[in-house]
């Protein structure tokens, strides 16, 4: 069975060519968008590199479409679990100074970061 379709998601055209894989290709614009969502800076030339590699992997992953899963419940994790409650009792926690010791920059018990907004001109 082979299908061919095009859909527009986030204003980006995605083509799906059947089930043999390598049909779904990511555009450079899409790679840029995903990298920004993940807060991953890209180096020059990497958009194309990731577009190629992710398209290849997604081509393989596309085979999941062959399976009819309409009536199947999703599994988030495989071992049945129940929520457990514990007594709400005060307990010692990690020592603040030892935790802060791993921070790239700390002052007076606070983490120091760059300005969130750019400085006024």
């Amino acid at each position: 069975m082979r299908r061919s379709s095009r859909s527009t998601i986030l204003g980006i055209v995605v083509s799906h060519h059947g089930l043999e894989g390598y049909g779904l290709t990511l555009s450079r614009e899409q790679v840029r968008h995903v990298a920004m969502l993940a807060r991953l800076g890209l180096e020059a030339g990497e958009e194309e590199f990731y577009a190629d590699q992710l398209s290849g992997i997604l081509g393989h992953i596309d085979r999941l479409r062959e399976l009819d899963t309409e009536a199947v419940a999703p599994t988030a994790q495989a071992v049945p679990l129940e929520h457990r409650m514990r007594e709400d009792e005060p307990r010692p926690c990690l020592d603040r100074e030892r935790v802060m010791a791993n921070a790239p920059e700390a002052r007076d018990g606070f983490f120091v970061v760059k300005a969130i907004q750019e400085a006024e001109p």
Binding site: I9, L10, L26, Q30, V31, V34, A35, L37, A38, L40, Y50, L54, I57, L58, I61, L64, R65, L67, T69, V72, A73, P74, T75, A76, A78
Partner: peptide, 25 residues
């Protein structure tokens, strides 16, 4: 990148939810 893409708006059902259903199978 792959995981962010699979979880991003418009793709969640097609990839992540689908994969969780296949995990059941």
């Amino acid at each position: 990148m792959l995981g962010t893409y699979a979880l991003s708006a418009g793709y969640y059902d097609a990839y992540y939810l689908k994969a969780q259903k296949v995990r059941t199978l």
